[in-house]
């Protein structure tokens, strides 16, 4: 039985969201025995333009490789928010960086996390913003287990950056926990 889950990470080219999608896909398929695929936007502007990556996870092989009803949407830039806010379910969870995305659609349940600022102060390296975003996503959605995502992260992380990557991911969990605590 299909149990399709669709996630979209969007940002400005160069922020590393493609890697976040890769890690999530790998976690689901390799470390949880489910099926996944990821489909990136591909544009001529490699850096600077709006970019996104869609990750689709299912209990059976994923058929249609594009999104149909997105469960989770994350955006780190206004341009990419505007460009890629489509195919969302009404009950989709949305995460934005309020510093960079200032206008958003109230229709969706939207969590505001100053991802860039937090990355800067708590992790140190800006390149880690996508992994931190992934941590937020995992904590909020529990779409894959933390064990699986950490294994996938360690497999993808370049040698010598494992600790920093884990730190970024776990900082993401903590930030999301704070948001969830506020809700209850």
């Amino acid at each position: 039985m299909s149990n399709r889950y669709e996630a979209r990470f969007s940002a400005v080219g160069g922020q590393g969201v493609l890697l976040a999608g890769d890690i999530l896909g790998l976690a689901a398929q390799k470390f949880e025995g489910r099926y996944s695929l990821q489909s990136p936007t591909y544009t001529a502007q490699v850096r600077g333009g709006p970019t996104k990556i869609d990750v689709i996870i299912d209990d059976e092989p994923v058929m249609y490789p594009k999104t149909t009803a997105i469960n989770f949407f994350l955006s780190l830039a206004q341009g990419s928010y505007d460009a890629f806010l489509y195919d969302l379910r009404d009950d989709a969870i949305v995460v934005i960086d309020p510093v960079l995305v200032t206008k958003w659609d109230e229709k969706y349940k939207t969590y505001q996390v100053p991802v860039i600022e937090i990355t800067k102060t708590k992790v140190g390296k800006m390149i880690m913003s996508s992994v931190l975003s992934l941590g937020i996503m995992i904590e909020l959605t529990q779409v894959v287990s933390k064990e699986a995502i950490e294994k996938a992260l360690l497999q993808k992380a370049p040698k010598g950056t494992e600790e920093l990557n884990l730190k970024a991911l776990r900082t993401g969990y903590e930030e999301a926990q704070k948001l969830l605590a506020q809700e209850t």
């Binding site: 896909g25 790998l26 398929q29 390799k30 996944s36 990821q38 489909s39 990136p40 490789p65 594009k66």
Partner: peptide, 10 residues
């Protein structure tokens, strides 16, 4: 096609 060429699946 571009979809298959650029997408990754396990």
């Amino acid at each position: 096609d571009e979809v298959l060429g650029h997408m990754s699946e396990g």
